[in-house]
């Protein structure tokens, strides 16, 4: 018996012995998925500070997209399975489509400097599920300097929230300035915290040039309509 097996949502290679044809490549490159016409699934990283709404966004995207594409999620919460448990508890995705990766106190390391555990989790999902179209990788809540390696994801979304203060976009950092999409979440709270959304929009655009910025309130729009549309657009474009 393996104790780790008790946690069905924890990534564990004992359960991950491979692709349906049994030809798991333990250390090789990601096998292509026929889900997008033989292309590898689109991998999107979702990063941002603690509590900004990353898991809420992942849940929203699962609700919006799971009926129209083959979708799986990897989470990197520092507390192992917190984010994964949330997704399972809220029934937005079945357990076999969620993997949790432990990051040893360093969530940014696991998505940027040493991406091996995340790559394994993605391959594990690919090997155990029907061909995937989309894999969302949620980083652990970190600081404004955390950013995904392009060896791990194709595109990254950085989620900040209004409650963190309207200064956040001005502060910059690689997440704010370079992410493929900046999401400014919890707009419903702007009045409560005295945050000026126009200031945030202006600062974000100043930091990001032409890169897109979307405002969301996931409590008011639990399907994250605008972000889901952004991802649909990417899904329709052939992979690199």
């Amino acid at each position: 018996m393996h104790l780790d097996h008790a946690r069905s949502d924890t990534y564990d290679e004992e359960r991950s012995e491979g692709q349906p044809d049994g030809s798991r490549s333990p250390a090789g490159t990601t096998p292509p998925s026929p889900g997008r016409g033989g292309q590898a699934p689109l991998r999107i990283g979702i990063g941002g500070p603690v509590g900004s709404g990353k898991t809420a966004l992942v849940a929203a995207l699962c609700r919006a997209l799971s009926a129209e594409c083959q979708l799986a999620v990897v989470t990197n919460d520092i507390y192992t399975t917190e984010d994964a448990d949330f997704l399972l508890r809220h029934g937005v995705l079945p357990a076999e489509r969620v993997r949790a990766v432990e990051t040893g106190c360093c969530p940014h390391t696991a998505i940027r400097d040493d991406i091996s555990a995340n790559l394994e989790a993605i391959e594990d999902l690919q090997g155990s599920l029907p061909p995937l179209d989309l894999v969302l990788v949620e980083s652990g809540g970190d600081n404004l300097t955390a950013t995904f390696s392009n060896g791990l994801v194709d595109h990254q979304v950085f989620v900040v929230d209004v409650a963190g203060g309207d200064k956040v976009p001005r502060k910059g950092g690689p997440g704010v300035t370079r992410a493929d999409l900046l999401v400014i979440n919890k707009t419903d709270l702007a009045v409560n915290v005295g945050a000026d959304l126009e200031v945030m929009a202006r600062d974000a655009h100043a930091q990001r040039g032409n890169l897109p910025v979307l405002f969301t309130s996931l409590t008011e729009d639990p399907g994250a309509t605008a972000v889901a549309a952004w991802i649909r657009e990417l899904l329709s474009v052939p992979a690199r």
Partner: peptide, 20 residues
Amino acid sequence: SPALRTASRRLGRQLLRCGL
């Protein structure tokens, strides 16, 4: 320990991925 075996094989696989 099965947990140690798992950890050792996981690390071995990741090192091999890196080495490759």
